[in-house]
């Protein structure tokens, strides 16, 4: 029983992290038709900027509570800033050439990820977090680290916030309408390019946030941190249906749980099951679980 509870909660925390990464990817693809390979780098940068902030503010090797929350803010801002730079500087000139957009996000992802290695060297870094976060709470006999709960809570907040944004705000409407028919949104006199930048920045912010929490979850970071998780986020996005935030949330839960439970039995079964799931979804429901019939 305690193993089941532990695996479930850890799986949900993993799902929360994937969701933070996937939600932005999904929105970006929904609106702009861009498969953003740079997203993993925003995640890596979120993790590194969080680590760096804590390293600057707290005495070596410890993480104070204020430092941790400051780190989360810094990670979010850094993610948003990098995303804005990539969108405006690299993607915008290439809107007429979709394949090259994918390629340039690949290049940006590679360059930005390697930049962390250039600045902070390639070795893994231990992520110092406040004790109350790495301590465990006992639930139904399972000892679960507290950062799992924080991660899940953060993802739920983000999910609620995004749904409100999409349903209630004008920019949310623009994003949803743009995902359906970009040209018609333009023909209503709306500057869709600004919406592109906004969505990219928002996605970058969420990836940065996810990177900071991901660092707390795994306890250490290295330059390949983002690219490893990006692949799973892609799978989440496809299974959930490109452009659907709710779909991403559902798919993230499926993937997070499948991975945790699978890998508990053998070290590779979880990862393998996920790929099979992806293949099955694509063959049976090519639009994803919550996908529209685009």
């Amino acid at each position: 029983m305690s193993t089941f509870v532990l695996l479930t909660l850890t799986g949900l925390a993993l799902a929360a992290m994937y969701f933070l990464l996937a939600a932005g990817l999904s929105l970006i693809f929904g609106l702009m038709d861009v498969l953003n390979f740079a997203h993993g780098a925003f995640f890596t940068w979120g993790a590194y900027s969080a680590w760096w902030t804590i390293d600057q503010v707290s005495p070596a090797g410890t993480g104070s509570t204020p430092a941790f929350f400051l780190a989360i803010v810094v990670a979010t801002v850094v993610g948003a800033a990098l995303a804005t730079i990539v969108e405006v500087g690299l993607l915008r000139p290439l809107y007429a050439r979709p394949i090259f957009q994918v390629l340039v996000t690949l290049g940006a992802g590679l360059t930005l990820s390697q930049l962390t290695s250039v600045i902070w060297r390639p070795d893994a870094r231990v992520f110092a977090q406040p004790n109350w976060l790495s301590d465990t709470s006992t639930i139904l006999g399972a000892r679960v680290p507290n950062n799992r709960f924080l991660l899940i809570a953060a993802a739920l907040l983000v999910l609620a916030g995004m749904l409100l944004f999409l349903k209630k705000t004008r920019y949310g409407l623009i994003v949803r309408a743009g995902a359906e028919n970009r040209e018609m949104v333009r023909a209503l006199g709306i500057d869709v390019d600004r919406a592109f930048t906004l969505v990219f920045a928002l996605g970058g912010a969420l990836a940065g946030l996810g990177g900071a929490f991901g660092a707390a979850y795994f306890g250490s970071i290295d330059p390949s941190f983002g690219s490893v998780n990006l692949i799973f986020a892609f799978i989440v996005v496809v299974i959930g249906g490109l452009g659907s935030v709710t779909g991403s949330a559902l798919a993230a839960v499926v993937i997070g749980l499948a991975q945790q439970f699978g890998n508990y039995y053998t070290s590779w079964a979880g990862d393998f099951v996920i790929v099979l799931l992806l293949a099955a979804v694509l063959l049976l429901r090519p639009g994803g679980l919550m996908g529209s019939t685009r």
Binding site: I231, F234, V238, V275, A279
Partner: peptide
């Protein structure tokens, strides 16, 4: 892009 992601997953 779907093809890109499926092959990536494989």
């Amino acid at each position: 892009v779907y093809l890109a992601m499926v092959t990536l997953a494989f």
